[in-house]
């Protein structure tokens, strides 16, 4: 009886691990999509609204869901008094502190890291170009993430169950 219970638990654990892994594949393209949308909003705030960067980031933060809103709010807060950091330092700090809450990978982080060097430091036309090229790069990542999702999501799910079952067979 106890043996049976143990076997059930092993299978359950395996399935769960598989599901969690699969979920990561499913969430990444969603998060990239939301990141792209938020950058496009930033583009509008800068290009048409003339909104100063800290306020623009706050607005976007308010409109975004977890975990992106943390990122934007943290950056905006670092730019304002009393810290008064530069835009670049603030964004880099926010990335470093909040990236662990996202399911995105290092490539996406690199895109934002690069964008932080130019954000707020030039005229509108230039800002637009930089944001657009960041969006393009993210779209490429998104396509890849979607492909990975199609390929691995289901596989991870079944693989979890199968590995659980395999372990049970081995030790039974």
């Amino acid at each position: 009886m106890i043996k049976l219970l143990g076997a059930a638990m092993v299978i359950l654990a395996g399935t769960l691990a598989g599901w969690i892994q699969a979920r990561r594949f499913a969430v990444r393209p969603q998060e990239i999509r939301r990141l792209i949308l938020s950058l496009q909003r930033l583009d509008t705030e800068i290009g048409y609204g003339f909104i100063p960067l800290p306020e623009a980031l706050r607005r976007i933060g308010a409109q975004s869901r977890e975990p992106l809103n943390r990122l934007y709010n943290e950056a905006a807060e670092a730019m304002e008094a009393p810290r008064n950091w530069t835009a670049q330092d603030s964004l880099h700090y926010a990335l470093q502190e909040n990236w662990k809450f996202t399911s995105m990978k290092a490539q996406e982080r690199e895109v934002l890291h690069q964008l932080a060097f130019t954000l707020g430091t030039s005229d509108r036309a230039n800002q637009k170009t930089h944001i657009q090229s960041a969006v393009k790069a993210l779209e490429a990542e998104e396509a890849q993430a979607l492909e990975e999702q199609a390929r691995y999501e289901k596989m991870c799910r079944s693989l979890g169950l199968l590995i659980g079952a395999f372990i049970v067979i081995l030790i039974y």
Binding site: I46, F50, I51, P52, L53, P54, A56, M79, N84, T86, A87, Q88, S90, G120, T121, S122, D123, R124, N126, Q127
Partner: peptide, 20 residues
């Protein structure tokens, strides 16, 4: 210089095009 420009433009050079 960078830091100073960043501070006086409120991190947003693009809002100061006319001033520039």
């Amino acid at each position: 210089s960078h830091r100073l420009l960043d501070l006086i433009t409120n991190h947003s050079v693009y809002t100061m095009e006319e001033e520039l």
